[in-house]
Amino acid sequence: MTPVTAEPTQRGTPSVLELPGASERLRSRLADGLTAVNALITARVDHDDPFIAEAGSHLTAAGGKRFRPLLTLLAAELGAGIDERVVAAAAGVELTHLASLYHDDVMDEADVRRGAPSANAAYGNSTAILVGDLLFGTASDIVADLGPEAVKIQAQTFVRLCSGQIRDDRPCPAGTDPVDYYLGVLADKTGVLIATAARYGAMFSGCDAATVETMRDFGERLGVAFQLADDLIDIESEADETGKTPGTDLREGKRTLPVLYVLGSPDPADARLRDLLTGDLTDDARLDEALRLLRVHPAMDRAREHTYAVAREAQDVLATLPDSDARDALHALATGVVTRVG
């Protein structure tokens, strides 16, 4: 199996259904499983109140690759395969993710999500927050039917997810390495839910404890790589590739990995870029200059190599699993996550 070395070439978050590691039979099973997941999400998000139903399905209707539930379904192929419990777990994970997006957009004051108006732009901050809470509750309701262990995992996942978001919104504490701090934030705010997606798939398909732990470990590393790739995309992409405005993280003052590398550079030639990155980037001209300088800075290559290294670590975790179509697809998924361009 080929390790991660390629330059970004794939547009959009990769779907397992598009990866070369998935056989036609595997693709067919995953497609059927995803249809069942989407049907369950649609049914559970529906509401007697038409407004609540509309607001709750706002992001669902906007599309998305269903990356997390697909990972749950794929992990289940390491065991007995996809059944109603796996489908329910996948739907619970996706609804948790969707709920977090409602809250993220309020925190970020976002106007666009998936190429459409964000929920806060469409309905206001208060409604967006409450709908996010409603979706969290719906996800918990689904997971509760899967037993106490699943509920415990969901609760622990939610705690880490929120902790990561809180720490992401705070400056790095004095005396702490900013890169280590940031990678820890990513493990919590993104890695943990992707880890739970993979863990649930193995768990509810009857895999042994060692395989369940392998998938949890794989998923967390994959999640960190996923978010690191998003950080690069925010700097490198054009708006028509992602449906989001390039430089959004910079405008909000977020210190992603390339930014941290620049700020840690003692090179006098970086003085102007450091000044921009530590100043007000709500001004379009300053933001455009910062993007222009950052895109050609060696910090981008350094951050990209770190991103690929994390993906390779995720792939290495899979070495303990027996050969199978599912393992090959998981390996390819790690490559696809970090070589996408939008």
Score class of each variant (00 low, 15 high):
Asn120Trp: 01
Ala116Trp: 01
Asp283Leu: 06
Gly342Asn: 04
Arg312Val: 03
Asp316Ser: 11
Phe51Asp: 13
Phe67Asp: 02
Gly184Pro: 11
Val179Glu: 14
Met203Asn: 02
Ser28Arg: 15
Gly164Asn: 10
Ala239Thr: 12
Gly336Glu: 08
Gly12His: 09
Arg251Cys: 05
Gly206Ile: 05
Ile153Phe: 00
Asp108Val: 01
Pro69Ala: 12
Cys207Ser: 13
Ala62His: 12
Arg44Thr: 15
Val310Ala: 04
Tyr123Phe: 15
Ala334Gly: 05
Glu305Ser: 13
Asp234Gly: 04
Ser265Ala: 10
Met215Trp: 03
Asn125Val: 02
Leu135Asn: 10
Glu238Asp: 14
Leu74Asn: 10
Thr72Pro: 09
Met215Gly: 05
Lys65Arg: 14
Val151Phe: 00
Glu305Gly: 03
Arg114Ile: 03
Asp240Thr: 11
Asp316Gln: 13
Asp168Ser: 04
His331Leu: 01
Thr60His: 13
Arg113Asp: 12
Arg11Thr: 13
Val93Glu: 02
Pro20Cys: 04
Phe226Val: 11
Gln156Ala: 12
Leu276Gly: 06
Arg25Trp: 04
Thr96Trp: 00
Asp230Trp: 14
Pro171Gln: 10
Asp267Gly: 03
Ala326Gln: 07
Thr282Pro: 04
Ala155His: 02
Gly184His: 10
Thr278Tyr: 04
Ser237Met: 12
Gln10Thr: 11
Ala119His: 03
Arg27His: 07
Val93Ser: 03
Leu34Lys: 06
Leu40Glu: 10
Val338Cys: 09
Thr2Pro: 15
Leu135Asp: 10
Gln10Met: 11
Gly342Leu: 08
Ala303Asp: 06
Thr72Trp: 09
Gly279Trp: 05
Lys152Glu: 13
Thr176Cys: 12
Val259Arg: 06
Ser265Leu: 07
Gly21Thr: 03
Gly63Phe: 01
Ala303Leu: 09
Asp105Ile: 07
Ser140Met: 08
Leu257Cys: 01
Ala239Gly: 09
Arg302Cys: 09
Thr196Val: 09
Ala61Tyr: 04
Asp141Glu: 15
Asp108Phe: 07
Leu330Ile: 06
Glu84Arg: 14
Glu236Asp: 13
Lys189Phe: 05
Leu34Ile: 08
Ala303Val: 09
Leu294Asn: 11
Thr72Met: 08
Glu220Ser: 08
Pro50Met: 10
Met107Ser: 13
Glu94Lys: 05
Thr127Pro: 05
